[in-house]
Design a protein around this nucleic acid. Sequence first.
DNA 1: ATACTTGCAAATGATTTGCCAGTGT
DNA 2: ACACTGGCAAATCATTTGCAAGTAT
Lengths: 124, 124
Amino acid sequence: VLETLFAAEGPVPAEAIAAGLGGRLPASDLASVYRNLETLEAVGLVSHVHLGHGPGLYALNHDGESEWLTCERCGDFRAVDPAALDEVRAAIHAAFGYRACFAHFPVVGLCPGCQSALGASSST
Amino acid sequence: VLETLFAAEGPVPAEAIAAGLGGRLPASDLASVYRNLETLEAVGLVSHVHLGHGPGLYALNHDGESEWLTCERCGDFRAVDPAALDEVRAAIHAAFGYRACFAHFPVVGLCPGCQSALGASSST
DNA sequence: ATACTTGCAAATGATTTGCCAGTGT
DNA sequence: ACACTGGCAAATCATTTGCAAGTAT
């Protein structure tokens, strides 16, 4: 499982891991994959993120957890360094007292491309 | 279904609507409830939010959609006026070009209570 | 022999779909 | 007669659990 996650380019669904990323790596049973992922998450080597509906996506924690942005229209997503969201976190903390984390559940919105794809109207 | 949503205090799972909020209102079949909710969402009267894992929660759009904050530790949540998140949205837009929306997927983090419950360490 | 890990199958929870009967126009 | 809505059962998708067989220590 670790080898497969290492070979993956980005976060992947458990099913893809079970399939060995489409046959390129040894396949295993989905149940074992979930069991291993659970263990690996518990020790902090792996984490998963929920991008919209659809299955959770798993990825290695190379240096630390990433946080995520995803587009609710086209489904695209990007990892961001947690530090890049510190200003956002500060604004949320100042307004509501919450300390936000976008590692497990991402920031959801419209990516620049989809903003223009719909008639670009709003400002700010 | 509308009547039930109107009687509900906050966002409720489809199952609670089907049960008539625990018997206080006429019960219906879960499938019908989902079908009606889908239609009501399509016409903009209702929206649902995904609070962490667990079922989606449905609520009326009284004056406009709310956006949500939820605590990943205690599961508590609160609705916020979208305007209150404009500063946050602006920070995200400035940094990444994304236009965030927290109506369907909330801001996830630690509420003030849970921050103290874990040894309050971090600042900002 | 004992502990850990797997594969496979069945269970769970949320949601969707198919279909048929009941109501309304 | 025809369109719409509801109930009920079965299907689907992601994930979990039980259990028996297999490998390792």
